[in-house]
Write a protein that binds this DNA or RNA. Sequence first.
RNA 1: GCGCCCGUAGCUCAGCUGGAUAGAGCAACGGACUUCUAAUCCGUAGGCCACAGGUUCGAAUCCUGUCGGGCGCACCA
Length: 583
Amino acid sequence: MNIFDTYAKSLNMIITKLGEEDALPKGLDLKNVTIEPPRDASHGDISTNIAMVLTKQARMKPRDIADFVAAELAKIDDVEKVDVAGPGFINITLKQSVIQSQVTDILNLKGKYGRSDIGGSEKINVEYVSVNPTGPLHVGHCRGAIFGDALSTLLEYVGYDVTREYYINDAGGQIDVLARSAYLRYEEALGKDIGKIPEGLYPGDYLVPVGQALAEKYSDALLDKPESEWLSDVRQFATDAMMDLIRADLETLEIKHDVFFSELTLHKSGQIDKALEKLEHKGLLYTGVLAPPKGTKPDDWEERPQTLFKSTDFGDDVDRAVKKSDGSWTYFAADIAYHYDKIERGFTSMVDVWGADHGGYVKRVEAVIEALTDKKNVLDVRLCQMVKLLRDGTPVKMSKRSGAFVTMRDIVDEVGKDVVRFIMLTRKNDASLDFDFARVTEQSKDNPVFYVQYAHARVHSVLRKAQAAFPDMDVSTAALSAADMTVFSDSSELSLIRNMMNWPRFVESAALAREPHRIAYYLFDLASEFHALWNKGNDNLDLRFIIEDDMDKTLSRLALISAVSHIIATGLNILGVEPVTEM
RNA sequence: GCGCCCGUAGCUCAGCUGGAUAGAGCAACGGACUUCUAAUCCGUAGGCCACAGGUUCGAAUCCUGUCGGGCGCACCA
């Protein structure tokens, strides 16, 4: 429980009490009340808008409400003083000892400081990556992969029961193309001259070993046979090989999924029929003809009757086809079954992480979810914008056709897992992101990964130095948390502690908003305050962490900066970045 | 033509789901190194939050419209 929640409870009790005393009306709705740190620290430690929010309900002036509430707040032990300011803000200043004692709390909780149970163990499914198994992962996939992974960890941290899932698109036409491409490499492995890879097949070298493996497994048994005899086997073989490749790629970023869900199984098991029956039952399927899209009419447009899902009932622009003209299922039909399956598995909340180029697909899937859950909106689709790769400011040219694209592995090999992960999380997911090789490997403040890592390493450097200076000093967590915290009186120290008091709120809001980048920003800010305090020690020797002739004070300072390092480590762990202790 | 996302300092972006005087970094200028790693810090300067209305005690944030940019727009996946 963080301190702001504590005061939320206190406010609740105060309002009830004032209601009983007839100072305020009874049964006031506190829904829009906020309890947060004021933007300007000179206004105190905790600020609430309660008086302004209640003014209409209570039919009283904000100032009058504020005076009543402030008088009650002032009775709380931890409160130093209460002010009413501006249009009716109530500002609480806590006793300095309360601020100081936060350090003890943080040290006692260590990595658990900031953890919460707002998720209430709700079963949530986070689906991410879900790349077609036709080749290695490239840069574009990177961002969604890292976003989904960090978001999952973040949600776990605040008490959700998270399942990380990958949907394998192993049923479509692109898998036939993959199989044919692999078969060509198979022929090549058996000594046949295959010449140039024909247009429309995958040209990448990564299929060469697949061809060789096929040759090993089947010898020449598939050679010179009609496609119908080998296609199914080669499809399976190549898909498995590609998934191994993709899993290995993900491994380099330390991304692991709990479930790999095959689209093909949906077709085979009859799940699609089952899901669509459900929609049929609700009267949401019909046979109809779609109008051509306005503005950009395709040249080969032809009218044809199709089985359609009435997604317009749920806010979509047009109804969507679930069957192709040849009678087979569309990709969308399988996706309906897939999301139905998630619901059946008991997920009451789901997140799909997609590339922004799939934005046009969002409404129809949301429509499906609403149709299947009676309009409960339990699906949240998060779109990740493009990543622009740069080298010293100039864009890296990529061409899919020639196969000259930068893979995820290339990037990880060049700059390292931690850098890739952190940088990908330094932007909001729906804003595009520049990834400049030169900048992200720089060892300077320009590079946020380095800056945050350095703060963490610096703390550990001091701990090492301190132990050298005081060989008998006990720097265990127990000893640190028992240190005298009343020595913190400088504005920089107190401001640092106040900043740390905000950590639980940040974690919570980042999780609720599903925006892991907020963690990265918080860490940068905390690191910045820490570096500032460090430098204050250059001018004022008394503010140094290690005070040579004063072991007790040194211990207190070590306690303070250890608290900082715990939070940085916790935050980096959520982002999947290793907190280093030495650089 | 329609839908979604975006427009904040010269540049790259935050802004805690409606709060008080809008914040960082880079670039510019001026300062701090016999150091607990200056791999850092401090200060100065820089703004009609694209534009116009609306909602209310209060708007960068919510609603409508306009302008500008990105993505997408029948059976592909």
